[in-house]
Design a protein around this nucleic acid. Sequence first.
DNA 1: TTTATTGTTGAATGATCGTTCCACAATGCA
DNA 2: TGCATTGTGGAACGATCATTCAACAATAAA
Lengths: 176, 176
Amino acid sequence: MQTFWTQGYDATSYGDLVEATGLGRQSLYQAFGDKQALFTTVLRHYGQRVTQQSLEVLSGDGSPIERIRQWLNRLRTRSEVHRNGCLFTNTAVEIVPHDPDVAAIVQRELKRVESALCRTLQQAIEAGELSGEEYVGELATYFFGIAQGLMVMGRLGMSRSKLKRYTDAALTMLET
Amino acid sequence: MQTFWTQGYDATSYGDLVEATGLGRQSLYQAFGDKQALFTTVLRHYGQRVTQQSLEVLSGDGSPIERIRQWLNRLRTRSEVHRNGCLFTNTAVEIVPHDPDVAAIVQRELKRVESALCRTLQQAIEAGELSGEEYVGELATYFFGIAQGLMVMGRLGMSRSKLKRYTDAALTMLET
DNA sequence: TTTATTGTTGAATGATCGTTCCACAATGCA
DNA sequence: TGCATTGTGGAACGATCATTCAACAATAAA
């Protein structure tokens, strides 16, 4: 997962994966199949390990608005440490246009995040933390896009202070 | 340029470029050099043709705020037509992490957009269209990230209405 | 027309890729 | 211990890649 995440799909050879896992070539093939099958398994694993953390933050206890702040700030601090962006974002840009199988997984997993954002924002309205005039779907798409932009900027190597200013500005949307 | 834009760098073979241009293999090599050199030429061409349009909109006449609206809406409508995102964004995600030469070009060209945003926002403050409390650099980075997110979502194939709601939400930042 | 230079085409080269074949070790069972 | 099955490691295969070589055509100069 780390190798695909850092290098991307095409730039990662099967030999890289053999080396990264420490397993034998044949063992990898028997366990996961060919390169595409291994990659889709990686995508699902990423969804259950990394994306799942986002969902848990968003559906946690406490103030819904605060949860969204926490969610975005965690994405940011994670991006600042390892500048690899998000595996789903990277995959979306690199190979979604010419691989329907991969596209389906990426879109399904990303949809889960957007839906979680939608639920949290709905709770914010019900808790009176957000003006009911806002359409939660619109705001959810907004923060979804904010996260995509953040991931690109992280992979671009932008400075921590710039990423911080970016997310801070984005979060002022919740103060109206 | 179109081929690299649609397929990405790694997924584009030299044979694809021969076919796309209608030129001979040797002619391409003589004119542009190897694949990486050809790609950097493409990146510069993209900067002068596509990105230049963004800069012109941002530095045009009329209301600065309105120019930023126009800029973002043009990015959006363009993304809705050919769902290839932005060549710089795609390149940033795909190969910036392991190609310093390409990274330098991408970062330089993207910096031009961010700087133009900065200038336009400064003009908005001077024209009294924007509260002076805002830091223009912060807002410029914000809209820069908004654009990156938009490009990813466009390449993800998200619906036109969703992209519209996204940019509309992002632009409300100018109404405070 | 002859010659020198430039540009083009097809085939070849070496490298790397994903994938598979085959021999061998390890393991579970009797 | 003997045997059958499963998992492992190295070498090989065919395909594709970027790149270059060498023969050929086209053009310009004299």
